[in-house]
Nucleic acid binder design. Structure first.
Length: 390
RNA sequence: GGGUAGGUGCCCGAGUGGUUAAAGGGGGUAGACUGUAAAUCUACUGGCUUACGCCUACGCUGGUUCGAACCCAGCCCUGCCCA
């Protein structure tokens, strides 16, 4: 095991707050593996790069010999974490939650070492909790404390509803810490309040309070909002290599340094041309979650397809014609058969009239036209998708 | 429980009997430009096999009317004030 200062040096990297560093040092100084908690609510089936920020931090703890406790919030997921939200989360059914939990843990192990991770479901202790216990827990937190939270405060100010079940969430998350006897809890910076509640509850149970460690939130592809599935601005850990690469190429330049730091744990070389830096970012990320050969393939494909705009030599999905020979019909069929996407007639017409649909680089603007669709010809559908005729 | 203001398209928000598929903004998509970045300009943005046509839509259900997002009744929901 590394010395305390050495461990601290690694663990502090990229954090927003540690409350407190002194406590962390003291815990590390005991020389025993610490229990590091991360709670995740399986509200969607996929983990994205935003989640991976915390997972990477856990991985560091793991490599330093500490014990990871991954709490699957099967119970809390049904309440919905109100952190940072301006509206109540839509509820999930228990079956959805369980299905998500499965894919969630599978994906988490792309980053974490499975053998050194303890996975627990918080439904284990919440499902059967007597109401009296619930009340006792509630008695430990005041309304005023809850209302000091930015998200609740904003909602109250805006006249948006805050439902009572939402204010139970921090208490539940805090109780998780008591149950698993966490020494450290990790979370995004929006988790600060929740994690601190855990400290309070632990103290009242006569335990040494957990250290609160928060990490920056990763903005999504739009560059503004927190990466999230529901906003559709995420890069999934299991996204296909080319999709992952493409998504990363679309992030705003301003975000690159942050992505380098949080996704790769590296410093961005500010002397590098932004586009080259972004290609490297995308390639490295693909290499981490897929393979370096896949990364190289993505890069080559990218250069052919977008940098040289050479769709003819690019590797494209093949399209087999249906009965329809007119532009409208072929395009709609292409979306459906190749990308499994149903596009409305209005959308198709808009793409055609907007000049997005191109055959070998020639815009096809008449939906009724019936050009000759030669084998090998390239049909561009939208900015990102093209097909080749079989 | 009482009073009061509201519930409009993905979101915000105008509209208070016909010219309303519903102003404006945001967001989104596409084109020009380009680095699938940013900025800028332009177009589109409910659905229908492509439609001066039809269907669906302004919390829900009924009603008045030639005609309703808009008027009436009942119901549901939310904010605020009072209890």
């Amino acid at each position: 095991m590394l010395s305390v200062p050495e461990q601290l040096e690694i663990l502090k990297r990229g954090t927003v707050t540690i409350h407190s560093e002194k406590e962390l040092a003291m815990k590390l100084a005991k020389g025993k593996p610490l229990r590091i908690k991360l709670g995740v609510d399986p509200t969607s089936p996929d983990i994205h790069l935003g989640h991976a920020v915390a997972l990477r931090k856990l991985r560091q703890f793991q490599e330093l010999g500490h014990q990871i406790v991954l709490i699957i919030g099967d119970f809390t997921a049904m309440i919905g974490d109100p952190s940072g939200r301006s509206t109540t989360r839509p509820p999930l059914t228990y079956d959805e939650v369980l299905a998500n939990a499965k894919t969630y843990t599978d994906q988490a192990f792309l980053v974490l070492d499975k053998d050194k991770t303890e996975v627990v479901f918080n439904g284990n202790w919440f499902k059967e909790m007597p109401f009296m216990e619930v009340i006792k827990l509630n008695a430990r937190v005041t309304l005023q404390q809850m209302l000091q939270r930015e998200d609740f405060k904003n909602r109250v100010a805006n006249g948006t509803e805050v439902r009572l079940h939402e204010i139970q969430y921090p208490i539940m998350q805090g109780w998780d810490s008591v149950v698993v006897r966490a020494d450290v809890e990790i979370g995004g910076s929006d988790q600060l309040f929740n994690i601190l509640v855990g400290r309070d509850l632990q103290k009242e149970e006569g335990m040494e309070p957990q250290v609160c460690m928060t990490l920056p939130l990763l903005e999504g592809l739009d560059g503004v909002k927190k990466m999230s599935k529901s906003l559709g601005n995420y890069v999934g850990l299991t996204d296909a290599p080319k999709e992952m690469f493409g998504k990363l190429m679309s992030i705003p330049d301003e975000l690159m340094a942050k992505y380098y730091l949080l996704v790769l744990g590296e410093e961005l070389d500010i002397g590098m041309h932004p586009m080259e830096a972004k290609k490297q970012l995308a390639a490295k990320c693909v290499a981490v979650y897929h393979s370096s050969s896949a990364a190289q393939e993505c890069r080559d494909d990218w250069d052919v397809r977008f940098s040289k705009r050479d769709l003819v030599n690019a590797e494209l999905p093949l399209l087999t014609l249906s009965d329809r020979r007119d532009v409208f019909g072929v395009v709609q069929h292409a979306f459906l058969s190749v990308f499994e996407q149903t596009v409305s007639g209005g959308d198709v017409r808009r793409l055609i009239q907007g000049g997005s649909i191109q055959l070998n680089g020639e815009k096809l603007t008449d939906p009724k036209a019936e050009p000759t669709w030669e084998s090998g010809a390239v049909l561009k559908l939208d900015k990102k998708r093209s097909v080749r005729f079989a």
